[in-house]
Amino acid sequence: MENSMNLFEYEITQHSADSFREMVYFCSPEGTCRLESIPRPQIQVMEKLLNERGRKGWELLQVSFGKDGILVFWKRMIIEENE
């Protein structure tokens, strides 16, 4: 019986606030942010990002909002070919 283990790789992408001009989120001076409202066009921008990455095998782990933009944390399984 072969011992198999799932292997993963991770990636963090940055997206500037300009990419989400109409997304309304507010950050306190301490860096705590909250969403107030998200217009439909901005939801579509986020859907496009998620779908593009998902088609490449990436799974969304977390999105971190900041005053200058967002950090998106991704993971995907590494598929190794048997030798």
Rank of each mutant, 00 (worst) to 15 (best):
L50S: 06
G69T: 07
S4G: 02
C27G: 10
L60D: 08
I12H: 01
G54H: 03
F26W: 09
H15A: 10
L7W: 03
G31N: 02
C33T: 07
N6S: 11
G57K: 03
K48W: 06
W58L: 02
L7E: 15
K56H: 06
R55M: 04
P29S: 12
A17Q: 11
E81R: 10
W74M: 05
H15R: 12
I12W: 00
E47N: 15
E47I: 08
Q62A: 14
L7M: 09
N82G: 02
S19G: 08
H15K: 09
N51M: 10
G69R: 08
W74D: 07
E80H: 07
G57Y: 06
M46S: 09
I70D: 05
G69S: 01
S37N: 13
M23S: 10
F73A: 01
E2A: 13
E59N: 04
R34L: 13
S19H: 13
C27V: 11
E83D: 05
D18H: 12
F8Q: 02
G66A: 15
S19P: 00
I79C: 01
C33G: 04
S28N: 11
K67P: 07
Q44K: 15
P39L: 11
M5V: 14
P41F: 14
E80Q: 12
E81D: 06
S4R: 08
G31P: 02
M46Y: 14
T13C: 01
F8A: 01
L71D: 12
S64Q: 13
Q44S: 13
E9W: 07
Q42K: 09
E9Y: 09
S16M: 05
M5I: 13
Y10P: 04
H15W: 15
R76Q: 09
S19Y: 13
I12C: 03
F73R: 02
M1W: 03
E81S: 06
L60C: 05
R21H: 06
S64F: 06
K48L: 14
C33F: 07
R53K: 11
E81Y: 04
I78L: 07
Y10F: 15
V45Q: 12
M46P: 00
M77C: 01
K56D: 03
E59A: 06
G66K: 08
V24N: 14
E36I: 09
W74I: 13
I70E: 11
M1C: 08
H15G: 05
V45H: 13
R21M: 10
T32K: 13
P41C: 08
G69D: 10
R40H: 11
I43H: 12
V72W: 05
E80A: 08
